[in-house]
Amino acid sequence: MIARPHARSAGTSPVSALRAPARLVALALGSALACSGCASGSDISGVWRSQTLAAGPLCGALGAEVTLELTLGHFGPDVSGMIRFYRDLEFEEPLDPTAPHFACGCLLLHKGRWSEGSQRLAFESQGCLPSSSDTAAALSAASLTVSGDELAGTWQRTDGTIKQAVRVRRVAGLEDAQLSCNRFADPALGNVANGL
């Protein structure tokens, strides 16, 4: 069962999650109270995508440029989510998770934290990266600041070998987001370490 936080762009409210018999009750009696149950301040839940093809050590896989998609679930001070890599700006060609390991298809976030005061998202990840030439899970961390519907900051490997600027824009809510990031046990295939 998945708890789907509402996203601003989706136009939903907490009462949409209520079951049918209770929906009228909440609408009639509790709009004010319902609002008090909403997450206070910013809500960064949703799907965020880079607006340009990124070349560089983090995203360039064998010289190919990739785009990245962040899917974030925001729960007060906590953030959960995943990163998926695509080959184009239309986000129609995901990197094949069954391709060789360096073609990393997706990656799960860890220790996602949101600071309401500084409007900053920080998270860690441990797993494959598109540019990695090794099969070991790479440790990386990111610190991104939100400004309107844009998240910008840096993402770097903790060993300092890769550091890259990241800028993504929110394009959708969580309702239609893909939340599967399968892990394949065969090292000959991709995603041997996606964070699980």
Binding site: A3, P14, P21, A22, V25, C38, A39, G76
Partner: peptide, 14 residues
């Protein structure tokens, strides 16, 4: 009665 969401959405469902 039915519950509304808590601010951190610790309730998995209403």
């Amino acid at each position: 009665d039915t519950s509304l969401s808590d601010p951190y959405r610790d309730l998995l469902r209403a």
